[in-house]
Computed example of a mutant assay.
Amino acid sequence: MFEPQHSYFRKMITKTIVFISIIDDIYDVYGTLDELELFTVAIQRWDTKEMEQLPDYMRVCYLALINTTNEVAHEVVKKHGINVLPHLTKSWSDLCKSYLREARWYYSGYKPSLEEYMDNAWVSIAVPMVLVHALFLVTNPITKEALESISSYPDIIRRSATIFRLTDDLGTSSDELKRGDVPKSIQCYMNEKGASEVSHPFF
């Protein structure tokens, strides 16, 4: 989307992806489990009053996320007359719930099966959330069918996210796992099958 007329799309998708990086680090590195539970509930409620329950370092992120996402929804209402805020907030809620599930696994020392991991990981890679935002920022007109299908994450989104997740897992370092990340698909497979990690000659 390099054309000049798509500058707003590029700006807002960039902001969205930056929020993903920040929030991912909150769940993986900075937040205690109790704090992450509070943050996830706050995201689900999508109300600035929830800021009072959050620790200071989360408040700025939470308010900025609400303001930026509401700005996207406002822009769509102006252009198309459609309120997409419930779809945008659901995508953030689904992402944070998937992050919280991974955090619970980490804090409890639980090792998920590969199937259990992948059932959560296609959401936690954030592809569905980004694609939901992208759909509303570039699609004209936004059809009723698109609105109905996007919330259930059709197969094209699930499969794209799965490919992205598996690719991303190949690049996860042991340092990331030590600092608070859950085992990735490779480790889940190794734990489940008793397989060893053997380097491929092309890597």
Rank of each mutant, 00 (worst) to 15 (best):
A64F: 06
D47Y: 09
R59F: 05
Y106Q: 11
C61T: 15
Y99R: 04
E102K: 05
D28Q: 06
Y99W: 13
R101Q: 13
S113I: 10
D47P: 02
L85A: 14
I26A: 01
M51E: 15
V29L: 12
S108D: 09
V29G: 06
D34Y: 03
G109Y: 11
T48K: 14
I26V: 14
N70R: 07
K111I: 15
D56Y: 11
L95M: 09
E52G: 02
E115I: 07
Y106D: 08
V72K: 03
V72P: 13
L38G: 00
Q44K: 05
P86S: 07
M58V: 05
M51F: 04
H87W: 11
T40F: 00
E35P: 04
H80T: 10
V84L: 10
H74F: 13
V60H: 13
W92S: 00
E115Y: 11
P55M: 07
G109I: 14
Y62S: 02
R45W: 06
A64E: 15
K90C: 14
C61K: 08
H74K: 15
H87N: 12
N83M: 10
A103R: 07
D34I: 13
E102M: 04
D47M: 04
P55N: 01
T48M: 08
L65K: 01
C96V: 06
D56Q: 15
K90T: 11
T48D: 12
V29E: 15
E37F: 10
S98E: 09
S113W: 10
L33N: 04
Q53P: 02
P55L: 03
V29S: 10
E50A: 07
P112M: 14
H87A: 06
K111W: 13
T69S: 11
A103C: 12
W46P: 02
D47Q: 01
M58E: 05
N70I: 05
T40Y: 02
P86R: 01
D47T: 06
Y106F: 15
A42C: 04
Q53A: 08
G31W: 04
Y106R: 14
Y27W: 05
L100S: 00
V84S: 01
Y57F: 13
V60E: 09
H74S: 11
W46G: 00
L95S: 00
E116L: 08
E52F: 06
K49V: 12
S98A: 15
L38P: 00
W92Q: 00
G81H: 08
T32R: 03
D56R: 11
Y30G: 04
E50G: 02
Y27E: 01
T69H: 06
E116G: 11
W92H: 00
V84R: 02
S108F: 09
L88H: 08
A64G: 12
E50L: 03
L95W: 05
T69C: 05
Y30Q: 01
Y57K: 06
L38V: 06
P112R: 06
L100C: 03
T32Y: 03
S98V: 04
R104L: 02
T69W: 14
Q53T: 13
R45A: 09
R45Y: 12
L38S: 01
L36I: 10
I82Y: 01
P112C: 14
L33M: 07
Y30H: 14
